[in-house]
Design a binder for these strands. Structure first.
Length: 487
RNA sequence: GCGUGGGUAGCUCAGCGGUAGAGCAGUUGGCUUUUAACCAAUUGGUCCUGGGUUCGAUCCCCAGCCCACGCACCA
């Protein structure tokens, strides 16, 4: 452990020397059990004076004033200031704090709470215990880590030094817990279905492939849990959800991470409209609980409001074709493919040569409607080609009974009246058009033949939902360890 | 994959054809209620990597690596 070579920078060497001095003085630099009474942030928020407390945290600031020292102990909950007086605590402990402890070290402190002259809630330190010696210095105390690469590759440094990141990830955790509670309160059971599948179904996406040695077979990380959850409907679960990771072997972007968190819920005997109500009430519930209301303000780093999203109910619901006609003209769907493409050029929508008719319309939808819709919009009656797993509309078989919920310029949630006719389902899967097709899962079709109850189903992209609610501009700011290229 | 921008001290950044600078952190000294504590002094750098141009490259050119943003694929 000791005596690293000369290539160690001076900063690291000094910290190692302090570590060795601690050991020489019989101080364990890496602590042990310490029974805390409070977390730093919680203690500061619900502060009461004259309380005997034990808190532990990382030293994130230290202000030495001769024979007195102030230092901050921090963790994910926040910070609390501690005060040390040399005469009271004794020379040995005082020297430990001022000469051997560095910013970045973890300390356990016991003492009595009080408020300083300047009104700062503090702990009057009586004993000190080193919980861990940090051998490397922390990022800039004022700016924190701003280098995106360090933020993502060494997320712990971002969490230590950036309050906004801490808040976002704590919020995300609480939101996910609240989503589970919301569904459980309404009688939904959480289930877990395979992430490793031999047929990657339930969506049209490129899967990650892996190999299972014991069975000598190729396997795929799931792109969606849908086909397994539907098997559970066949099995008699009537209200279920799964909230976990999906994997798609596609590009990285501000809105895409190859592994992302998806909620899927199925409710037997329901339909897409009731599922829309469910999603609407769930998202509003989260907003009221975590954002203080239904107006969500997104802010930049300076605190200026850059966007306001209005979640007040009822949310707008509009048919897909009507929305497109609204931006591309009443006669859009009567135009030939070539005329549609010409119109796209006029509208500034890029289309590629190989696109078929409905794909061109879809492109118009994505560029001129989806990306420009920030307040919630349920897009209903989507062309059947786009959604092979949903029921066709009784009045118009060219569309399906689904919604696509757009908020914040992104698709946040699809909801279906689930297709449960095994004969139609087989046809729809076998006659998919276009380049993006879903795999045909025979085991799924077999299950359907035993009878799947009619049902409504939803998916919610949790990362994007959290982005919308927290104002994060990139999915990387709501995923703790986003995928980056290997260095 | 393509395009644009970026990579300089532990961190945040400035600089620029003549081999580097600030603030913070660190070190030393001072200070018993401070909070981006303060005052004084001071250490610290393969200027992302490899080629090229040049008397001389951190700077200009080429290639590569990584990051960000946009486009494409997708949710």
């Amino acid at each position: 452990m000791q005596g690293q070579e000369h290539s160690e920078s001076e900063l690291l060497q000094i910290r190692r020397d302090k570590l060795n001095t601690m050991v020489a003085r019989g101080i364990d630099p890496f602590g042990g059990r310490f029974d805390t009474t409070h977390q730093p942030g919680a203690l500061r928020r619900d502060f009461q004076p004259d309380l005997e407390v034990k808190v532990a945290g990382r030293v994130t600031a230290r202000r030495t004033m001769g024979k007195a020292v102030f230092f901050d102990l921090s963790d994910i909950t926040g910070r609390i200031q501690c005060y040390v007086n040399k005469k009271e605590i004794g020379d040995e402990a005082f020297e430990l704090l001022t000469e051997l402890v560095d910013i970045g070290d973890w300390l356990g402190v016991s003492g009595k709470t009080f408020v300083t002259k300047t009104g700062e809630p503090s702990v009057h330190t009586e004993t000190l215990q080193v919980m861990s010696k940090a051998l490397r210095p922390l990022p800039d105390k004022w700016h924190g880590v701003t280098d995106r690469e360090i933020k993502y590759r060494q997320r712990y440094l971002d969490l230590i030094s950036n309050e906004r990141s801490r808040d976002t990830f704590v919020q995300r955790s609480l939101m996910v817990a609240e989503i589970r509670r919301f569904l459980q309160d309404r009688g939904f059971l959480e289930v877990e279905t395979p992430m490793m599948q031999d047929v990657p179904g339930g969506a049209a996406a490129t899967p990650f492939e892996t190999f299972f040695k014991a069975l000598n077979m190729a396997m795929y990380l799931r792109i969606a849990p849908e086909l397994f959850l539907k098997r559970l409907l066949v099995g008699g679960f009537t209200k279920i959800f799964e909230l976990n990771r999906n994997f798609r072997n596609e590009g990285l972007s501000r809105r895409h991470n190859p592994e992302f968190t998806m909620l899927e819920a199925y409710w037997a005997f329901s339909d897409f409209e009731q599922m829309a109500d469910l999603v609407e009430s769930m998202v509003c519930h989260l907003a009221e609980k975590f954002c203080g209301g239904l107006l969500i303000e997104h802010k930049d780093d300076e605190g200026n409001v850059t966007r306001t999203i209005n979640l007040q109910r009822p949310w707008r619901r509009a048919p897909y074709k009507e929305l497109i006609k609204g931006v591309a003209g009443e006669g859009w769907f009567e135009l030939s493919l070539d005329d549609k493409k010409a119109k796209c050029a006029e509208l500034g929508v890029e289309v590629s040569g190989g696109m078929v008719d409905y794909e061109v319309s879809q492109q118009v939808f994505e560029k001129l409607i989806e990306e420009k819709s920030f307040d919630p919009l349920f897009v209903t009656h989507v062309p059947a080609e786009l959604v092979p797993l949903a029921k066709q509309n009784k009045a118009d078989g060219s569309v399906v009974d689904v919604y696509e919920l757009v908020i914040n310029g992104q698709e946040i949630s699809p909801g279906y009246s689930e297709l449960n006719d095994p004969i139609v389902q087989r046809e729809r899967l076998e006659h998919q058009a276009g380049e993006e097709t879903q795999k045909v899962d025979e085991e799924f079709l077999l299950a359907l033949e035993y009878g799947m109850p009619s049902a409504g189903g939803i998916g919610i992209g949790i990362d994007r939902l959290v982005m919308m609610l927290t104002g994060a501009e990139s999915i990387r700011d709501v995923v703790l360890f986003p995928q980056l290229k290997k260095k």
